[in-house]
Design a binder for these strands. Structure first.
Lengths: 346, 346
DNA sequence: GTTAGCACTCTCACTTGGAGAGTGCTAAAA
DNA sequence: TTTTAGCACTCTCCAAGTGAGAGTGCTAAC
């Protein structure tokens, strides 16, 4: 009796979750019987609900109101009751179509991912740019922009492109800049950090040294922290949910979104977590995320094993459709991985 | 009596605006006398307020409550009563310091501008990237990224940098790409649209033609519409104002911010408006902006006369500190112009 | 032209009193 | 032993009512 639930109790828990997600109102025993035409009475449901409440899967906002799922209730639902849902086929096709229509540009794919997830889940979406494990420099270019400013663009192994503006001590003509870039590029492809450092130390040209030192700084920086743009979308979706009717709550959640630190935390966690190769669900800020009290987050990695990778995710109220969200996140991350792999191999 | 106000009436109007901006509550005659130690009585103030209400500069939420300024009241205040305010010197210095500390990178300046404005005005800020009037191509580079993908980076006269990903029909080695880029670059600096088109038509190399046609498409596109990133900041500031306590209102405003179309409209209006060389104030959606009913927008252009330009702005509730916001927007836009001019000339 | 005094109006916060929804418990039925 | 009908009980929600307080407009005196 302590550890396990009967089949009927699980069934009722699933119904409560489903009903509450839909209506956002405490679910009563009578309503459940009526809505799903159960072949046992409301009194029976009440008894089962009492058991579920004892197990802390359900709770009552106040004595003698309907039940709502607790955090543990959602977790149980996600892990054992939900089953492996998939997006409807026509939706899958529609999304694929959108991706193929986009220019074959990683940036476009990322913002498209954010937009698709926001639409599909009616939540707020997050997508990080690519992240390289051990960056190697393939090729670089220097372009004079304005005065002493020079734009440095470089391509890493795996295809990630970075850019940065340098301000040199004096104005240097484009011809000379091109020569410097050539000198570095001639050293071959896939230059790793040690060999770059060696090149820098041996460089006789001042400009060359400056360029190399900036690249090194950038690469080393990005190996520890996941930097880069975060694509966001669907903020208004989540704010229209009834749980954010209280402006104080809404504001707190919004601040979360504006502040990069929490998001970085969240996303990098997924990027580095090697064992969970599927979709990760964080319910009601499980772990140490106090800021996410009433929210749930669904995350997944994308990318090929050997090359670049990033994360896509969705944030919504704890009362969200996990089945829909998980399937959407899984589909988009798989699609991204697939497209990336394709664009490398071809 | 019809068209003009006495000095005292103007004075009282200014006080009402000031007090209402501070407290967000209807201003009563008694409170005004008490707060500002006026040397006439509340009854006198009441009489003057009645006149101001007749002129539609003030309104009452209901019979026998305090007064709040109308849209016209704010406008009168901004145009005739406010006076030329400036940010405190120490604040100016602090901001300057932040800008000088940033890497000399236009992108950094833009996001810094957004952040500074949001902080200074406690509103939501908007900053557009640069916009070129008549683009001329200075220099370009081609970098193989991944498979058939090639990154095209090019610098326009004035220093704006654009990039774009091409997908070629077949994989081309970096060596060959560099040769193509060189061929185009050797044609000299400041290549305008007609000369580019000529080059494209005469090009014998397939890759070269493809590259040129994409550049042409991009340039022609950007001459009509102001494209580019919009930097945003301080969303939470404006949402914490009491006028957005109603979640429906808050959501409407938020949607405004997420949707680019209105913002583009707003900003491009300022960019193209040649005559207003100062700061532009739009109160309560004056003109045709229904979406901005309860909001005010303060905008200014930045940039040098001959080169690139963009716009910075702030959105807040109609009840905002116009004096502080206008001075902040003016300061930041001037500073940006100054920095840009400097970085060109040096 | 200004001000004290006062009646009047309107909001806001609080209380009160059902009505209704839903439960837990008990005892009977299956 | 399990299920169900019945019922008393609890708690919220809504609507109406009430009084305090704030602020006004008006009038008459200064």
């Amino acid at each position: 009796m302590k550890g396990t639930l009967t089949e009927r109790q699980k069934f009722i828990l699933a119904l409560v979750v489903r009903e509450y997600v839909e209506t956002a109102e405490p679910v009563s025993s009578g309503r459940l019987v009526e809505q799903y035409r159960l072949d046992f009475s409301s009194a029976t449901v009440r008894n089962e609900m009492a058991v579920l409440t004892e197990h802390a899967y359900l709770q009552q906002p106040y004595t003698s109101a309907g039940r709502i799922p607790t955090r543990e209730g959602y977790r149980f639902f996600v892990q054992q009751l939900m089953g492996p849902a998939e997006l409807p086929t026509h939706v899958q096709q529609m999304i694929r179509h959108q991706f193929y229509q986009a220019r074959h540009d990683v940036d476009d794919w990322l913002s498209l991912s954010a937009s698709v997830l926001a639409n599909q889940t009616q939540g707020a979406s997050l997508v990080t740019a690519l992240h390289i494990d051990k960056a190697k420099l393939n090729h670089l270019a220097l372009l004079a922009t304005r005065g002493r400013q020079v734009l440095l663009v470089y391509v890493l192994e795996g295809g990630e492109v970075r850019q940065q503006t340098l301000v040199l001590d004096e104005q240097i003509p484009q011809r000379r800049l091109s020569a410097v870039a050539d000198a570095i590029n001639r050293q071959g492809e896939a230059k790793d950090v040690p060999s770059l450092r060696l090149m820098m130390e041996e460089a006789e040209d001042e400009v060359e040294r400056q360029v190399l030192s900036m690249i090194l700084a950038e690469i080393e920086d990005s190996e520890t922290i996941s930097t880069g743009t975060i694509y966001r979308d669907g903020l208004t979706n989540v704010l229209s949910e009834p749980e954010f009717a209280d402006p104080a709550v809404a504001q707190k959640t919004l601040r979360l979104f504006e502040d990069r630190s929490v998001l970085d935390d969240l996303l990098s966690k997924t990027i580095f977590e090697r064992d969970s190769n599927g979709v990760q669900v964080i319910i009601g800020g499980e772990g140490n995320w106090e800021e996410l009290q009433n929210c749930s987050v669904i995350l997944a990695r994308y990318g090929t094993e050997t090359h670049a990778m990033g994360a896509v995710g969705v944030i919504g109220p704890m009362r969200m459709s996990y089945s829909r969200s998980v399937s959407a996140v899984r589909f988009v991350s798989d699609l991204m991985s697939e497209l990336l792999a394709e664009s490398i191999s071809s």
